[in-house]
Design a protein around this nucleic acid. Sequence first.
DNA 1: GGGAAGATGTTCT
DNA 2: GAACATCTTCCCT
Length: 195
Amino acid sequence: MTYQIIDESYCRGDTAEIARNLLGTILVHFSPEGLTSGIIVETEAYLSQNDPACHAARGKTKRNAAMFGPPARAYVYFIYGNHYCFNVVTNEAGKGEAVLIRALEPVKGLHLMQERRGKNHKKTNLTSGPGKLCQAMGITGEHNGCPLFQDPLFIAICKGWRQDFDIGVSGRIGINKAQDKQLRFFVKGNPFVSR
DNA sequence: GGGAAGATGTTCT
DNA sequence: GAACATCTTCCCT
């Protein structure tokens, strides 16, 4: 499988469209413990306009500052006392938009993912949720603001994974505000999609 | 200073 | 399907 790493321009423009486009791309992390990677199969868009569920809705804070930075960077935040969530910053710097990566199909480093997740999880339980995939991939708050087009953490378009998948659309998961917005995108029928 | 909510995961019934 | 663990962040109930 050959990769073509994305560049900054890939994440400029309409955030919902980028959320769709990210489906079927691969997230790769060269960590000190080893390589892990997975195909992105579920995403959610968070917008700056008319979207109270977006962390940037109430303006820039210390926590969400990375969302207001340049696109194609990571926005990683800590939630519920236990979990990290990984986002791709989109649109232009200053906007405050991002795409939450909700699920991956593991490709490489399965053993390391098992180790990081602890216990004896099934393959489908390694990366099928935003908190799970961060733990499995070794993504933490250290990666907040990191570029996503160079080592050690990057997203690439891969030739070789099937490109003929159907895209499902639904309301976003786990939020109380703006539940009617159809901003969740996923690969239909993929067993690694959450829920 | 304090409280409540939060883009979740796990375990139990 | 529901309860709960766990703790940071942000805006005052």
